[in-house]
């Protein structure tokens, strides 16, 4: 972070103002302001239906906002399509895996690498260019612990491996901002530890926004936490402040198996 200019430190990488999203009469997200700094690790918490995924979809462009603006890297991206935001440097995963089950791990990562480069319509294989992208795919597979499954069909991977692949795909474009929607959901205890290590090992220059139900994962990885409820942001603070916050306890930590955090 030492080489980041003052202007960049002052300017958040992502700035949301007054973001709202309605589905018919339902306010899935309302009036959200959010600033995320360069290199920050932000966790978004909140009960099911709080609007976390919808907020991600609005940021990535998968759904348009009903109101408000989204600035990314100082540029208003509110009306840009998802592909343009990807090219500016957003990478994301989905709560429900969206890798290509009928293709190999290699081809999935290859497509993720190619996505933000030119040559989508090239109808011939070029040894050098494609070889370079496949080398990059191999590196990514190794980095997320799938080096040994490189040639396997994704449909034959375990759930945990598919989640690892998603992280690899989100990283493939070297994004400035990476958004992970519940990357630990459905993972075993051991797999969650491995995933936490993977997230902690990410290049510190990458900004990370993480939706996560698992407090062990979220509070270890995050340096700031945003709590959502009923479409609104209700609390924002450091992990310690969140642990100490009464509202959070009432809404979230106080219930069920996370009360020991």
């Amino acid at each position: 972070m030492t080489d980041v200019s003052k202007a960049e430190i002052a300017e958040p990488i992502l700035r949301l103002r007054g973001i709202g999203r309605r589905f018919g009469g339902l306010h899935a997200v309302r009036d959200v302001d959010l600033d995320v700094a360069h290199g920050e690790r932000r966790a978004i918490l909140g009960p099911n239906g709080a609007g976390k995924t919808t907020l991600f979809n609005v940021i990535s462009g998968d759904v348009g906002p009903s109101s408000g603006t989204i600035d990314f890297l100082g540029e208003d991206v509110s009306v840009l399509p998802p592909r343009a935001r990807a090219k500016l440097g957003m990478g994301r995963t989905y709560q429900k895996s969206r890798s290509f089950l009928g293709m190999t791990v290699e081809d999935n990562l290859y497509l993720a690498v190619l996505g933000t480069r030119s040559g989508h319509f090239r109808p011939i294989s070029l040894r050098k260019r494609d070889g370079e992208m496949r080398d990059r795919a191999r590196e990514l597979a190794d980095a997320v612990g799938l080096g040994g499954r490189f040639g396997e069909l994704v449909g034959s991977l375990s759930h945990g491996e598919q989640r690892q692949l998603e992280v690899g795909m989100a990283r493939a474009s070297n994004p400035h901002l990476m958004m992970l929607d519940e990357p630990a959901s459905g993972l075993s205890r051991g797999e969650r530890v491995a995933l936490t290590e993977l997230l902690l090992s990410l290049d510190p220059a990458i900004t990370l926004i993480l939706i996560e139900h698992d407090m062990d994962v979220a509070l270890r990885v995050a340096d700031r936490v945003t709590m959502m409820h009923d479409g609104r942001v209700i609390v924002e603070g450091t992990p310690d402040e969140i642990r100490a916050n009464q509202t959070v306890h009432d809404l979230y930590l106080g219930r069920g198996n996370h009360s020991d955090v």
Binding site: G61, R83, R85, M90, Y94, F100, L101, G115, R117
Partner: peptide, 10 residues
């Protein structure tokens, strides 16, 4: 297989 995923990949 998944146009939405492809769009968010660029």
């Amino acid at each position: 297989d998944d146009p939405i995923r492809m769009a968010s990949l660029g």
